[in-house]
């Protein structure tokens, strides 16, 4: 039932920092999340893109140094888009994603508790159909664990350089607009 104690403690510490950062980043606030989808508040985009660029550059550097493996999920070209589209509707209705709902629940926001109840119900239902989905939808057009550099032949560093420049220009434009 339990993993080893050191791994449990490591998980607690990592999660603690994750929750602290999500709360300080204001993404455990439903108004901020819905505001992003209405394009009124770009906090979610700022947090996520910065995390992707900083995180990705470091993870690939560690990978090159042999310090970590990569954990790329399969590109199932039917299941991932369909799941993502359903997820987007749920995220706006609830006002949180799974991680930020846990953070909001920790803060005492009661709507997040109801959201978590809905999530657990969905997990129970999904588990009953998981075998069916695995042998159908998730098999259709499955390219396997492919990355953008592998797919395009454009090297990893070029991707991160391009992402960083695009994000910097976009955020600079957003901040200059915000000051008007």
């Amino acid at each position: 039932m339990f993993e080893t104690l050191p791994r449990i403690l490591l998980g607690l510490l990592t999660g603690f920092l994750f929750g602290f950062l999500l709360q300080k980043g204001r993404v455990s606030d439903r108004r901020v999340i819905v505001g992003q989808f209405l394009l009124r508040d770009f906090t979610v985009m700022k947090v996520m893109l910065t995390a992707i660029i900083v995180g990705g550059a470091g993870v690939y550097a560690m990978h090159a140094a042999g310090l970590t493996k990569l954990f790329v999920k399969p590109a199932q070209l039917v299941a991932v888009p369909v799941g993502g589209l359903i997820f987007g509707v749920g995220m706006v209705l609830l006002g949180y994603c799974p991680g930020t709902a846990v953070a909001a629940a920790g803060e005492g926001k009661r709507d997040a508790w109801f959201g978590l109840a809905g999530m657990i119900a969905a997990a129970a239902v999904y588990a009953e159909f998981a075998g069916l989905f695995a042998s159908t939808v998730q098999k259709w057009s499955n390219l396997g664990p492919v990355t953008l550099p592998e797919l395009t032949g454009v090297p990893v560093w070029a991707w991160f350089a391009a992402l960083a420049i695009a994000a910097a220009l976009f955020f600079r434009w957003l901040e200059s607009r915000a000051r008007l």
Binding site: G83, G84, I86, A130
Partner: peptide, 12 residues
């Protein structure tokens, strides 16, 4: 919302 969210996440 929580139900749809998690169902979609598991499918994806």
């Amino acid at each position: 919302g929580g139900f749809l969210l998690l169902f979609g996440a598991r499918l994806a």
